[in-house]
Design a protein around this nucleic acid. Structure first.
Lengths: 116, 116
DNA sequence: GTATCATATGAACAAATAAACATATGTAGA
DNA sequence: TCTACATATGTTTATTTGTTCATATGATAC
């Protein structure tokens, strides 16, 4: 912390105090960042978007995104760990689908922002 | 691409075709990922959340997040480049604020997802 | 002018992460 | 049981990204 003076002198105290009181817990904010991190990779976004339509097996996703099976599988695992997708097994296939509607609405919100 | 067979054989063609038709352009999806990437870091999320309340100067943010001035400045630049915050100068201070309401609504959507 | 303060920026370093590669698991059919 | 196939996983590598340190810029007060 090279600039001690700054940290203590120029602060607009009332506003800062008010902001601090309204901030969620550190841990919540951390989780929130983790959630958004899931949407912050183009391969994962594509996977999620693809699942908007319907459940898909790993192979379907790999082909339609033109990405290797391994890469898809790794990313699906990440998404599954973070509860954004769920899956069911049917024979040799694993069918993945979106875990809940929040996923859709978050992505749509983002899309709206892009499209203006 | 070690697994050619898979890419061509097991695909559920009708569904895949339908999904492809409804996917946004590659570039859009890339931008979308870039947008969410902004929210995918806890320092940046904290900064944005802090700005929910009111505009703040760099020093205010640094103190209330307990992060170095330099780190805050770097992140603010990233956020500014990506049009999530704007700023005005007043004497020695730079006051930053949220660029628009989408930022709020996206974060709130994410928060809802966390809180269930 | 000089000193001080608030902010910005460049470079270096460390940590995180996504993809590739090799391989393992598990299922179905012959 | 043997083979083929769909998926998963461990490891390594290359890249990205966030922070720190050092320094620069720009403004105010003296």
């Amino acid at each position: 912390m090279e600039n001690e003076k700054c940290e203590y002198l120029c602060v607009h105290e009332k506003v800062v105090e008010k902001v601090i009181n309204n901030m969620p817990k550190e841990e919540k904010l951390y989780d929130l960042a983790e959630l958004f991190k899931m949407f912050g990779d183009s391969t994962r976004i594509k996977i999620l978007y693809a699942l908007f339509e319907s459940e898909l097996c790993v192979c379907d996703i790999a082909q339609l995104l033109n990405v290797s099976q391994t890469a898809v599988s790794h990313q699906l695992r990440v998404l599954k760990t973070n509860k954004l997708v769920k899956y069911r097994k049917e024979g040799k296939n694993s069918f993945y689908s979106l875990a809940d509607n929040h996923v859709c609405s978050i992505i749509n919100q983002g899309m709206e922002h892009i499209n203006e």
